[in-house]
Design a protein around this nucleic acid. Structure first.
Lengths: 196, 196
DNA sequence: GTGGTTACATAACAGTGTTACTAAACCAAG
DNA sequence: CTTGGTTTAGTAACACTGTTATGTAACCAC
């Protein structure tokens, strides 16, 4: 007869992920030690290994959650009668996500945690985020805002531009907020013109 | 009368930076421990602290060297009578640099080494790389290939696009080489059209 | 009480960046 | 020659890391 569990595993798992998210947001990736995460949830590091396999498993969940949030932010963008404006709004949502969660953004698109590297399965799991962008591009093509082209190919361009701009902005390379605003506006205008 | 030095400091400094570069290229950022770098140069970790202040100081030199190389790659791009083609060639050089040195690229544009974060001085030191891009954009404006606009503002767009594409490509998100070629080609075509 | 099982925390291990410490190597002065 | 002073260099020590090993706890069945 096994020893009873002190805590519900689902709840503990949730708390560990949340604790990791808080530490990451407040202090950056260097704060993500198994000891600190475990301590923040009143348990021991063994829980990380039992519930996630290892530290990378925990960080993987945080990575996936970052994309879930981005997907949700995209889904929250209202669908108007103007597909081009909707696509711009997606870009705004992407930028806001990066600015509001710089450390999580780096975790999603960079390699700040040495132990973690996304696997192919994780890549598949984040596809919905990109799919939302592809769908928005398809609507622009259908509405005639963009010249006929494969929505996927267009989405790559938009994705690259947004990621490049967000990365530059997070590094402080785009100047103050107003200057950064202007850069985003110009870049999207150029690219939209080029895609028309 | 001080004890004589066993090694010339300039030479040792150079060797430590080179050793770091080799370890980074061959095994990635996780191999960049002070002990391994010191061992590879037949000295002890104290040398890292004496010559660079700390590990971050060594990594900072590698970061700067990465940009020196990129600047050199840009300088090696021949200046033709076609400024737009020259700008494309700069993009190719940027991409080649990223593909040939993926770990160094991540060090230059990401945060793979937790101890190191570029300071403002480092930011100034890498300005020449960006200046080359700005100059190439200026030539496109002067030649009428691009509509009149601040070369700096154009350079930001090109930089963002190139960085986004390179990052996606290094992550395996652009498919095989031919597919990636096509994505780069399309993205630059769209942006150039938009800037015309 | 013993055995078996799961659950959990702690100890132990090997590695990390960094600082502290000790010895080495040399010349000057007495 | 000895002592003192200085720089140089390597190693020891420290606190931290991810991870595995270990020991104890908690429960029921026999």
């Amino acid at each position: 007869m096994p020893r009873p569990r002190k805590r519900d595993y689902e709840t503990l798992r949730r708390e560990l992920i949340d604790a990791g998210g808080r530490l990451l947001a407040e202090e950056g990736p260097a704060a993500l030690s198994t000891r600190r995460v475990a301590q923040a949830t009143g348990t021991s590091t063994t829980a990380v290994y039992n519930l996630f396999g290892d530290k990378a498993g925990l960080v993987r969940e945080m990575f996936l959650e970052g994309f879930d949030r981005l997907t949700a932010a995209f889904a929250a963008v209202p669908r108007t009668g103007d597909p081009a404006a909707d696509l711009l709004a997606l870009g705004d949502a992407y930028r806001a996500n990066a600015r509001d969660n710089p450390h999580l953004y780096e975790l999603m698109f960079g390699r700040p945690v040495p132990e973690f590297r996304p696997d192919a399965e994780a890549g598949r799991r984040i596809q919905p985020t990109f799919d939302a962008l592809i769908a928005a591009c398809a609507r622009c093509v259908e509405a005639g805002a963009f010249a006929p082209a494969e929505p996927y190919a267009i989405a790559v361009q938009l994705n690259a531009m947004a990621h490049g701009l967000a990365s530059l902005e997070l590094r402080g390379a785009l100047g103050d907020v107003e200057e950064a605003d202007a850069h985003w506006k110009r870049a999207y205008a150029s690219l939209f013109k080029g895609l028309a």
